[in-house]
Amino acid sequence: MNSLLTAPAIMVGIGLFFGAILAIAQRFLKVDEDPRIEATNEMLPGTNCGACGQPGCLPFAEKLVSGDVDPGQCTVSTDDTIESIAEYLEVDAGRQEKLVARLRCGGGGLQAHQIAEYQGFEGCRAAAVVSGGGKGCAWGCLGLGDCEVACTFDAIHMNANGLPQVDTDKCRACPDCVAACPRDLFELVPIKQNLFVQCNIPLAGQAATQLCSVACDACGKCVADAAPGLIRMENNLPVIDYSAGGPARPDAVFRCATHSIVWLEKEQFQDQEARPARMG
């Protein structure tokens, strides 16, 4: 039968023909684009979260290839992925210090006073536009969970006291919660920095403590107790500057009467018991 010959012949012919066409095409129609960009992009998680400071994963990949950023700046990828990207691009991984989101407010339903009742769409920003949402403290956490919704990584959950609890394991330090908070309470800080000011009230003395039992009354004791230069008062609030002063020790928080400056060993608000979220 001659079909025994035709079949392989046709196949070989097709293989040769298209192999040749494609080979020629590759040579003459090639468009110059670094293939590493695509390869790197494929390795990245593709969440387009923006935690690296780039608008998305593809731009990050472009910057990676051009050498402007380090793979480690991607906070979402696992260590393995970062290693393999670094290996592929033959660069240093440049691991970053782990950052987590911390809330500059400790005034939940139990501590901060509510002066009026808010009714309407459940959301911090929505409440904030209605005369501040009725919370006495005009700087504190509204507790309606915009950050919880905004978090891409399911790392934020509102606790029973109406404060957002950040799961430091899950937190990738993307700026979603920072942008979502209408009162700008979230700050991305290195997880190793244990000293943290949990208050945002620029008022001093009684004016502050009237609004909230854990408000900073700007007494300045922490400044005195900490290593020189570590803490300074600014706008009636302590500001901690790790680069400027001596080592941080828990001493600074011991004499704080309102517990507005804290020494965090683990997550914020972990010791809070479940109590009713809001008071009248």
Binding site: F121, R125, A126, V178, P182
Partner: peptide, 19 residues
């Protein structure tokens, strides 16, 4: 509460523009 939702959105948009 449509107006409230609209104001929320406007607030977010202007706030984010600033930041």
């Amino acid at each position: 509460p449509i107006v409230q939702l609209i104001r929320t959105a406007k607030d977010d948009l202007t706030h984010r523009k600033e930041s």
